[in-house]
């Protein structure tokens, strides 16, 4: 068999220099999205999520005796659920981002391309965020069914989208940072699931418990819990959107700190192996 690896007609040194194509982060983001959505991982998650939402919506909407407040509460429930699942998924996908490539032996081939480490990491964050956007999108019809009569659909959507995106950026970045710091994918996923348990624990406390200042501090220190508390305050308690803005401080700080750590320290973290010896 003779093979002809003749000089190519396209992809020559000149083409590569000219760079007619799209920027690196966009190419990475597109490919990561394809991987996420065509490999079935994303779709399975969305499917399970919509089955659960259907059950919740069916139970609440068939209950004719629901009063006005209970309807608002079910909108709140579905929205919180969507935010929680979307953010969780973003974190876990982020946690696979670097360590997964290390483990599968595909990181080195990415590192020898001229694409900046920062673009690789930004592309991966964007792809992870699409999971949140998809969960949010799936929850819209359910929110419509539950919320159309009480006239809170618009505010609920805007609120959920804003708070959820803030949380997803923060936690997706944390996931990627964890991933960059772990050599094995198992460690990375385990660490991020542990983080999830911590973040979701306070929101699971029965509301009847005495809620002293300690609980308040715990709640406000936790970006997910305080983000969800803000949603409840508006949707259920009917507060004005400016009244409880302080609840958004932690989600905002998380997004800013984790996001900039990722952008600024990311290039040092995206390496073949983790640690100081890695070169």
């Amino acid at each position: 068999m003779t093979l002809q690896v003749a000089p190519p007609a396209v992809g020559t040194r000149q083409d590569v220099q000219a760079g007619e194509g799209q920027p690196g982060w966009l190419v990475v983001a597109q490919q990561e999205c394809r991987d996420l959505w065509t490999s079935g991982r994303g779709l399975i998650l969305l499917f399970l999520f919509s089955v659960l939402l259907s059950a919740v919506t069916y139970l609440t909407s068939t209950n004719q005796a629901l009063n006005f407040l209970e309807q608002r509460e079910s909108v709140n429930l579905v929205l919180q659920f969507a935010v929680a699942v979307g953010v969780l998924a973003t974190l876990v996908v982020g946690a696979d981002g670097i360590s997964g490539e290390r483990e599968r032996g595909t990181l080195e081939t990415l590192l020898v391309t001229p694409v900046a480490r920062r673009s690789i990491i930004v592309g991966k964050l964007i792809a992870a965020l699409t999971l949140w956007f998809a969960t949010f999108g799936v929850s819209i019809p359910y929110l419509w069914v539950l919320g159309r009569e009480v006239g809170i659909l618009g505010p609920a959507l805007a609120l959920g989208f804003g708070v959820g995106t803030l949380l997803a950026v923060g936690l997706g970045s944390i996931g990627l940072l964890i991933s960059a710091a772990c050599n094995s994918n198992k460690t990375s996923i385990a660490a991020s699931i542990f983080l999830l348990l911590i973040l979701f624990a306070p929101t699971q406390l029965p509301s009847g418990l005495p809620q002293g200042w300690f609980f308040e501090v715990l709640l406000r220190a936790n970006p997910v819990a305080s983000g969800l508390a803000y949603i409840s305050a508006l949707l259920v308690e009917g507060h004005a959107w400016t009244q409880d803005l302080s609840y958004l401080i932690t989600p905002l700080l998380t997004a800013i700190i984790a996001g900039s750590a990722l952008i600024f320290a990311g290039p040092q973290l995206v390496r073949l192996t983790r640690g100081v010896n890695a070169g």
Binding site: V10, G11, D15, V16, Q17, A18, G19, E20, G21, Q22, G24, V27, V28, T109, L110, T113, P114, V115
Partner: peptide, 8 residues
């Protein structure tokens, strides 16, 4: 990979 090098 070709697109990572700037090809359309």
């Amino acid at each position: 990979y070709a697109r990572l090098y700037g090809l359309s």
